[in-house]
């Protein structure tokens, strides 16, 4: 009885911590991206609000919440509001299977810093990623506008194609590790001493492409190509309703997928113990943010593909490569024993 209460309290605390951290981190990622983009483009990012512009996300949030809610005529109101939730909820749910560090002991109980230690964690990640398509589809249809419609159709095609490739790419790592549980994957990397990126560089590159496509970043941000469709499927949303879409898609999605990528390929929290008892957590965060830095760097450098090229790229080039990679890995494991 005591055990169950304790577990319930622990889970409640974990959920609260993860929610608070991810939403706060999502907001501050906007600051990080704007500063980064600014210095990359020979200018400064936000500097006025707070020292170094650190209070800018709070100002932005306040501004978005106090804007006049303008809803165009002829929208399908149920779908219009449901689209926002369908975009935000899967992105936050992705954080339920992200392991933040090694397991530690408090008061004799072993606690794993993960909200839900599923045995099919990676499959859950794929499922939540696919659910993100609903948000855009509903938003595009409910907006009663041609631009939104075209944007959401493009995004739907994109997500469908890149989910398949994502599945096959991650499957190679799962074959090597032998399980879909994130803790097992990290433990097998720590045990063998070699991170999986050494064994699976092709799979990592494919995963990176899928990461960029799933979260709608250049070179795959066809659904909101500004010169063509203004802001794509969220063109009829204003105020905080608009603010939720980039938060969920550009920041939370990217953060979660970067975390999963660092678990799958870079060994999660593996690293030399130079920071004392928290070194696992620090290494994990460092790897995630390093990957995030790379994603932002690519976003602000490369041009974007055309809609038909993106889908062609996924089905004609990435999918065969990922299948060949998978088959090769399978043979390698079979013959190596």
């Amino acid at each position: 009885m005591n055990d169950m209460v304790f577990t319930a309290i622990v889970i409640a605390i974990k959920i609260l911590v993860v929610l608070a951290v991810t939403l706060g981190l999502g907001a501050y990622l906007t600051w990080y991206e704007r500063k980064f983009a600014g210095h990359l483009q020979a200018r400064r990012g936000p500097t006025v609000v707070g020292p170094f512009g650190l209070l800018q996300p709070l100002a932005d949030g306040l501004k978005l919440m106090t804007k006049a809610p303008i809803i165009p005529r002829g929208v399908d109101t149920k779908l219009y509001y449901m689209a926002i939730m369908m975009a935000l909820v899967p992105a936050i749910m992705l954080f339920a299977v992200v392991p933040f560090g090694p397991s530690f002991k408090i008061m004799g109980h072993e606690i794993k810093p993960i909200v839900a230690n599923l045995n099919i964690a990676i499959l859950y990640v794929f499922a939540m990623g696919s659910m993100a398509a609903y948000g855009t589809l509903f938003a595009g249809w409910a907006s009663n506008s041609k631009y939104a419609f075209i944007g959401s159709l493009r995004k739907a095609a994109l997500i469908v194609s890149y989910e398949v490739v994502l599945g096959f790419a991650a499957l190679s790592v799962i074959l090597l590790a032998g399980s879909m549980n994130v803790f097992d994957i990290v433990d097998s990397q720590i045990k063998s001493g070699v991170w999986y990126i050494v064994y699976q560089p092709i799979s990592f590159i494919l995963f990176l492409f899928c990461l960029l496509a799933e979260s709608g970043r250049v070179p795959f941000d066809i659904q909101e190509a500004e010169a063509e469709l203004v802001t794509g499927y969220n063109v009829e949303y204003g105020g905080m309703k608009f603010g939720i879409f980039p938060l969920a898609e550009w920041y939370l999605n990217v953060l979660a997928l970067c975390a999963i990528a660092s678990v799958l390929y870079f060994g999660g929290w593996a690293g030399p113990h130079i920071f004392g008892p928290f070194s696992g957590f620090i290494w994990f965060l460092a790897k995630t943010f390093g990957l995030l830095f790379f994603v932002l760097w690519v976003h602000w450098t490369l041009p974007r593909y055309q809609a038909k090229d993106v889908v062609e790229f996924a089905w004609k080039y990435l999918l065969p490569i990922s299948i060949i990679n998978l088959v090769g890995t399978a043979f390698f494991i079979y013959f190596k024993g």
Partner: peptide, 21 residues
């Protein structure tokens, strides 16, 4: 080709910004 583009933007990241505030 991507790596060449990325190095150019990295070089600009490390230069001083030119804004007059």
């Amino acid at each position: 080709d991507f790596i060449k583009g990325l190095t150019i933007t990295m070089k600009n990241l490390l230069r001083k910004p030119i804004t007059t505030q």
